[in-house]
């Protein structure tokens, strides 16, 4: 068994995926509890691409009904840590 990645690592992975979707956005000053859409001007196509990227990176299933849980950085970290345990 490999050691599970730390929250810091997961966080930087998520930020990298966001950066790939919105290359011009400054993800370093992202507020963790405010929705990505409001901060990064993501539209529904961007958000779908982000969810697909999370699915591919972390090998998790994300039903459409759960999308709202992934709309903030903190939300993503909570979901990803729950999926791992």
């Amino acid at each position: 068994m490999s050691t599970p990645p730390s929250e810091g690592e997961t966080r930087s992975q998520v930020l990298r995926l966001l950066g790939e979707i919105a290359p011009e956005a400054d993800t370093t000053s992202l507020r963790p509890d405010v929705s990505f859409r409001d901060q990064l001007d993501l539209d529904s196509m961007d958000f779908l691409n982000f969810v697909v990227a999370l699915h591919k990176e972390f090998h998790i299933e994300i039903p459409e009904a759960d999308y709202p849980k992934y709309m903030t950085l903190n939300g993503c970290l909570i979901q990803l840590s729950a999926a791992r345990s």
Partner: peptide, 17 residues
């Protein structure tokens, strides 16, 4: 759309547009 997307993997879901 909701029913359809529920049955589809995330990579094949549709947007309402």
């Amino acid at each position: 759309l909701k029913d359809t997307n529920e049955r589809r993997p995330v990579t094949e879901r549709l947007l309402y547009s």
